[in-house]
Design a protein around this nucleic acid. Sequence first.
DNA 1: GGCCCTTCGATTGTCGACAATCCAACTGTA
DNA 2: TACAGTTGGATTGTCGACAATCGAAGGGCC
Lengths: 217, 217
Amino acid sequence: MKRGALDPVVQESTPAIIARKIRDAIARGDFAPGVQLGEAELAKELGVSRGPLREAMQRLTQEGLLVSYRNRGLFVVSMDQDDFRDIYLARSAVEVAAINRVAGTDPEGGAAKLMEAVRAMEAAAATPDGQAITEADMRFHALLVELAGSPRLKKMHDTLLTETQMCLNALKSTYDTADKRISEHKGIAEAISRGDSDLAEKLLAEHMDDALMRLIP
Amino acid sequence: MKRGALDPVVQESTPAIIARKIRDAIARGDFAPGVQLGEAELAKELGVSRGPLREAMQRLTQEGLLVSYRNRGLFVVSMDQDDFRDIYLARSAVEVAAINRVAGTDPEGGAAKLMEAVRAMEAAAATPDGQAITEADMRFHALLVELAGSPRLKKMHDTLLTETQMCLNALKSTYDTADKRISEHKGIAEAISRGDSDLAEKLLAEHMDDALMRLIP
DNA sequence: GGCCCTTCGATTGTCGACAATCCAACTGTA
DNA sequence: TACAGTTGGATTGTCGACAATCGAAGGGCC
């Protein structure tokens, strides 16, 4: 019998599933920052009892997406400008590390996949859907960290990305032109392909500064 | 009435307290990697019911300290060499960002506090307790990230530090001489005090490589 | 009118009990 | 002896119910 043909079945736990659903809803903006999440109501809506639901909430609290006030309830975290800055600072830390890792191990292969993501951004820019290019943008950054092959960097980055989405929902930032947005990403990918991690790092820092400046005037 | 004289009382939730206790126990090595944590037993020992306990477990699972196998239970994560490498990679990412932040905002003040932590290491080295210097070592790194003033970097780093402790417990790594260990940290602090973040970054990278090499031969 | 106290409804925090699932040991068969 | 099937004990997953706490509305007092 051929070995390694089958992946072990992973049964996701119920709290993990619930947490994902609520996390996505928060990222989409379906739950506005600051609003309270009533347990009974959510449990009824999801078709589970309060037990598993509360376990899921603890996950999201640990992640920093919810804040808990004892005996009062759980609330979607509301972020101020300091949080915006902090999110982009932390994202820079993670993505810079990813750049160095990719540029130091597989520059060409990694950059090729990143260029594919850039092309996806170009395709998204051609559509009238304004949300599409933002999603493609975030996928670029998610891919960059994935390519680094570090489970811990990836996990940290995932939460940072949902927080980023919350920022964007709150402040509806927009690029004036999609061209600049695309070329910035392309520049990073090209620098990586050349193994020039210093340049890629510098370009990323500028890219992050730009994004932050669009959020905070 | 004078304003701002009182801090708001923060009532830590029960799951948060339980999670901290178990997290500390894991960091200390009281729960060896790979062992199963029975809910009933733990609940009885902590004097709570299984409800809040399970909520705490979800926190630790989200943190990556426990792994959950459905219908089988929760186990302390067991780490291999890839995990060791990944932990030090992620720590480098966070601490490099902290260095740049401290060196870029308050180099002298930050470095002064770091030098204090170095002196604490020297004091610990003078004691026969071999664990003391390791704790002082980790406090140096924790302080470095605290000085960056980023809640997100700090939270990420805290989990990485407990994972680091798990590594050390598993492999009992030791420096041959405490002098080298202290001088490495002193060098980083001095580089920061001069605002030379590039040098500090380079020294930290070497410091991390050294630590990893002592773990993985 | 303004302030404090009390009461009430609603929500959270906690617990015990039941059902579902899994692992290990045992039994029977070829 | 080796293997498939069965049974039993123990643990996890889920639920409903009760107690504790909080915020808001109402009433009384100065």
